[in-house]
């Protein structure tokens, strides 16, 4: 229970101190039934919540369960609403705020297409090596790199590729999981 027992006055004014938006990663375990993604996304748009990144895939095939990882930016009051509203959806099993619970691992994968010749090709390969990006496609004037890591690392890699000859990028969005032996 989260009783905000104050010596005097109203609980209402508590909100004043906690209205800075924060970036949180939520993981939502759902039944993989038709329309479940639309329910989750529709809830965000209907209530004016924000989605920064969304990743969804079936994770337990025999139980027909999917995990949805949502990155959102909201004030703590709205974050609580997002969690409670998600839990209200019938096919939702659990919602975890990984940022609030702390200590989660977050990873993202990006495919980065870079075109160029001569010194630029060498430089691109050198940087890819520093970022442990793999070359998964190559032609005489282009590479496609696969880079994995935290979003900040992916963004940094993309930024470095820009002057070398960045053509296009595709990103998976964030996947996140807690550390240690415990499951969700």
């Amino acid at each position: 229970m989260n009783a905000n027992l104050l010596p005097t006055g109203s609980a209402y004014f508590l909100t004043q101190q906690t209205q800075t938006p924060e970036r949180h990663t939520l993981t939502v375990l759902v039944d993989n039934e038709p329309g479940v993604l639309a329910r989750v996304v529709g809830l965000f748009s209907a209530r004016g919540f924000n989605i920064d990144s969304l990743t969804v895939s079936e994770t337990e095939h025999d139980k027909h369960r999917s995990r949805i990882t949502v990155v959102t930016v909201a004030t703590p009051k709205i974050l609580e609403q997002i969690k409670l509203q998600l839990e209200r959806l019938v096919p939702v099993h659990k919602v975890h705020d990984l940022t609030a619970e702390g200590n989660a691992i977050e990873r993202e994968l990006a495919l980065v297409k870079v075109a160029g010749v001569g010194e630029n090709r060498v430089e691109a390969l050198r940087l890819a090596d520093a970022f442990r990006a793999q070359v998964i496609d190559a032609s005489t004037e282009s590479f496609v790199f696969e880079v994995t890591g935290k979003s900040s690392k992916v963004e940094q890699f993309i930024a470095l590729m820009a002057p070398i000859g960045l053509v296009e990028v595709v990103r998976t969005g964030l996947a996140a999981i807690t550390r240690g032996a415990e499951g969700m």
Binding site: N4, L6, Y12
Partner: peptide, 9 residues
Amino acid sequence: NKNILVDVP
């Protein structure tokens, strides 16, 4: 706590 924060939910 949707519209009004309460002390004892």
